[in-house]
Simulated scan of single mutants.
Amino acid sequence: MTGWHAPDRLIAGYADGSLPDADAWSLEKHLESCASCAGRVSRAVRATAAGPVLTDLRQAVLAAAPQAPAAEPGPLRAPRLLWAAAPAVRGAWLPAVLLVALGAVLLAHVADFSGARPLLLAVAPVVPVAGVALSYGRHADPLHELAASTPSAGLRLALVRTAVVLAVSLPLLTLAGVVVPSSDAPGAAAWLLPGLTLTLAALALGGWLGLRAATAVTGGGWLCAVLAPVLATPDGAVSRHLSDQLSLYVGGGAAQGGWAAAAALCAALLAARRTAYDRLERH
């Protein structure tokens, strides 16, 4: 509950459907914690032409399920959050994260492969990018058409699923880097800023290209930049050249500072283009 309450003009626009999406999202967020405004919105909607229809529908639902308990706003938040985040952790992406992490550990400790950490650091930044591509859109969510028609869709929903992807992949892959020994590769956490930057870049480009195309551009661009020079080396010392390449891209304060600046720029661009997600994959 806050000291601010929605003005009548805002509530009237929400009730008759004329309120812009951005204002509707803001009002819906406020209604989650303000019972007074929620009651005013309910009364305003009932006063519109749709009011009698909604009343009849509510009575029909209650008649069909008389034992259903009254829903509380607080307990509903967890199921709603799980519904919003579910596509980010289902399907093949989560096993792929585990495969990358465990594969690097097994290569280092079982196969005694000295290039396990450089290889992990090369692949890790594209893992969350791929997770974002696989968690948002009609290809990822059977209910996407329904979700995309609500004020909570668009960038807000994409960011919720991106946060889940990052929360899963960042600790797993960083922990794998810690337990994989390496004498010359950058530290286990050196990929975090590049991974975050590539994810933000994919989200920002998604407003123009669509999310899947944007993730292909950013993730593919990173892999080409890191792996192409290494594979082209004539002496075949792939592990050493990969470590050198990664040290150039992610090692040291200057490189990390550049990634931090790029992440801030991508975040600003994403904020400026946030309304593009209102129309993304709705048709």
Rank of each mutant, 00 (worst) to 15 (best):
R9E: 15
I11M: 10
A12I: 13
G13F: 06
G13W: 10
Y14W: 10
A15W: 14
G17Y: 14
A35D: 15
A38L: 06
S42R: 07
S42V: 05
R43T: 12
A44V: 01
A44Q: 06
V45I: 14
T55C: 00
R58I: 11
A71D: 14
L76F: 01
P79C: 01
P79Y: 10
L82P: 03
A84F: 09
A88T: 14
R90P: 02
W93T: 06
L98W: 15
L102V: 12
G103L: 02
L106H: 10
L107N: 08
A116P: 14
R117I: 02
A122L: 04
V126Q: 11
V129S: 07
A133L: 09
G137E: 13
R138W: 00
H139E: 10
H144Y: 07
L146S: 09
T150S: 04
V164G: 04
L170G: 03
T174D: 03
A176E: 15
S182M: 01
D184P: 00
D184E: 08
A185R: 13
T197F: 07
A204W: 15
G206Q: 09
L211G: 03
V217T: 14
A225P: 05
A228L: 14
A228F: 13
P229C: 00
V230C: 05
D235H: 04
S239W: 02
D244P: 02
S247E: 01
Q256L: 07
Q256I: 12
A264F: 04
L269Q: 10
A272G: 04
R274I: 03
H283E: 10
